[in-house]
């Protein structure tokens, strides 16, 4: 079953800047789809539209069979519980003045009617829940009382991932989640995402310019260029001769 269907989506920022041009694709439950492209290809615009941070002019987005309105401030409460996002800049995604445990619990406080399955018993304190979340992403529970400034970039990104999965979303959108991290840390974060996806059966939309990272995590890939989708294929077909010339050029630039 398709969890997300994007049909003919177009986004125009100004007269001369069309960020997305008639983009259509769908996302199956439990799969991980990679979106590859250079800067300016519309990758981040797509992510921001899907999470409801940007409006769009044309086309339709359907999530779990209900339409998502094109307006920015549309009523998205239920939708946002099910669609969470991880941004590139791990530091600015956390409030520097809140200890980690408070930042971690914000989504659960906003959706207090929801009890995630990792809370198996009643009567857990907020701290206990935060520590459980830290455990899910491989962080030590003593980080709960620290502030973002005391954590490394990789640790901060793990906190962001923990917070994103706390509502047990069906779809996780990752916009260049490893681009500002050291290579050794990048692998750890990607491995974590892969494990979480398998454990929790989350669908992942993984946006990156790093074709190596995309082939590590994703089974299916779409290629954006200047706002248009120029190619779409299963990972196994990456080297097929019918690949678009732009895909080939990207692959060639990344190859050793």
């Amino acid at each position: 079953m398709s969890i997300l269907v994007v049909d003919n989506l177009s986004k125009q920022y100004s007269k001369n800047l069309q960020a997305l041009k008639q983009l259509s694709f769908s996302l199956e439950q439990g799969e991980s789809l990679g979106v590859v492209g250079e800067s300016g290809s519309g990758k981040s615009t797509l992510a921001r539209i899907l999470i409801g941070l940007e409006s769009y002019q044309e086309g339709a987005i359907t999530f779990q069979e209900s339409p998502i309105a094109p307006k920015k401030r549309a009523p998205l409460r239920a939708y946002r519980k099910n669609v969470q996002m991880i941004f590139q800049d791990a530091a600015s995604a956390l409030n520097p003045k809140l200890p980690i445990w408070k930042s971690l619990l914000e989504p659960l406080k906003n959706y207090s009617e929801f009890t995630p399955s990792f809370i198996e018993v009643d009567g857990l304190s907020d701290k206990d829940i935060a520590e459980k979340l830290l455990g899910l992403v491989g962080l030590d529970s003593n980080l709960a009382d620290r502030y973002p400034g005391e954590l490394s970039g990789g640790q901060k990104q793990r906190v962001n991932i923990a917070r994103a999965i706390s509502l047990e979303p069906s779809l996780l959108i990752c916009d260049e989640p490893t681009a500002s991290l050291d290579v050794t840390v990048q692998v750890q974060i990607l491995t974590l995402l892969k494990e979480l996806q398998q454990q929790l059966n989350i669908t992942i939309l993984f946006i990156s310019h790093d074709i190596r990272a995309v082939t590590f995590l994703c089974e299916r890939i779409i290629v954006l260029k200047e706002g248009s989708m120029v190619d779409q294929f299963e990972l196994d077909d990456l080297y097929k001769s019918r690949r678009n010339s732009y895909t080939k050029a990207l692959l060639d630039a990344a190859s050793l």
């Binding site: 290579v183 050794t184 990048q186 692998v187 990607l190 074709i211 190596r212 990272a213 082939t215 590590f216 990972l235 196994d236 990456l238 080297y239 692959l251 990344a254 190859s255 050793l256």
Partner: peptide
């Protein structure tokens, strides 16, 4: 930590 492409 270098992620390899499928061919590699």
């Amino acid at each position: 930590s270098l992620l390899s492409l499928p061919k590699e």
